[in-house]
Design a protein around this nucleic acid. Sequence first.
DNA 1: CCAGATATGTAGTGTTCGCTACAGATGTGG
DNA 2: CCACATCTGTAGCGAACACTACATATCTGG
Lengths: 200, 200
Amino acid sequence: MGMGRPREFDAELALDQAMEVFWRHGYEGATIAQLTEAMGINPPSLYACFGNKEGLLKAALDRYTKLRNVWMDGVVAAPTARDVAERMLMGIAEKQTDPANPPGCLLVQGGVACGTGSENVPFELAARRAQNEDQLRDRFVRAKAEGDLKPTSDPAALARYVSAVSVGMGVMASSGSDCEALRQVATVAVQAVEAQSERR
Amino acid sequence: MGMGRPREFDAELALDQAMEVFWRHGYEGATIAQLTEAMGINPPSLYACFGNKEGLLKAALDRYTKLRNVWMDGVVAAPTARDVAERMLMGIAEKQTDPANPPGCLLVQGGVACGTGSENVPFELAARRAQNEDQLRDRFVRAKAEGDLKPTSDPAALARYVSAVSVGMGVMASSGSDCEALRQVATVAVQAVEAQSERR
DNA sequence: CCAGATATGTAGTGTTCGCTACAGATGTGG
DNA sequence: CCACATCTGTAGCGAACACTACATATCTGG
């Protein structure tokens, strides 16, 4: 039995284009017509490869978080909890205003509220954000064990906090805030982590 | 000349229902059918009264911000910048998880990204959020003048920061975080404002 | 009671949505 | 070269979308 005609487009390259459309217009705001045009393919190719619109989103999210996790590994490699927060938030200030991408964060712009039939999309995004929060929490647990964070500090709360700030920065970026404004937010935000750190 | 048949529904009451639909499903996720059903009216009444879907959203936003501003007046009445931040973020933790309303904040859930033809909706929401930020900034400017905040502090940056945190909390609330989790975020966040305050 | 004005309910309008049937093209295994 | 399998482009499916024409109902001013 034959293996059939090979696909003529690069799935990962097409995903990058789809990712950008979802990023800019959100899940519901992105149309199949816009997606197929950006991906350079026709609807049947899209559906054969990704199942449906939601499947395409999940594939794009997988790709997004994969790239993001590589970056996060570098973030949590910072020597102290304070430096982790600073590296993360300062990096986010730059990444979310990078003109190479749509402003903000796909995990937020993708859709915080959706209509009937797409209710699980916001949860899908939330689950990906939770991964980053877990990574931060683990890092802060270590920082507490190392005596970097105070014994009274709450690593989970700190991780939630840093995650919340980055989400807020993402929304600000998508509505026009420039890198400098976001860096100011990051600078202030880091001081809360500093307050939970042992003096040195 | 006669004044015509009077409308049979309460516009403000209907707006409250529309507000809830936009809040829960976002601008694009909310359909006219859902809106009219929740408002208890038929499409022609909606269009005669609010122009179109976007006009209805703006009217709902006006009502939302009006109620919110009353609350904000109480927030900025707190004696210190630190207390302003605490009162605001703790209040937001409760309000955004109040089961009487959809979770999160309409000014975020309404839509951070929209499709072609609704591009100005996110900006409309951002403009309303900016009002709150301005109110906070003015309050922090005063706090600095009063010697409550350090001379080196940046009131505008602080306001942006508090605003960013509240937006982030809103997204977390909409994706299932409970009040306690948000309060933890608020508790940490306040410490950054504290770090900018004069010791007393 | 009448004329003008506005609101309401019914029943649609045209458009766009996500998605797919189908025929032709292009590959593999025998 | 032939079955078979998979991809591709054209063309269009039914459904849902925002919105509205129209007849009717209910008001005010004279």
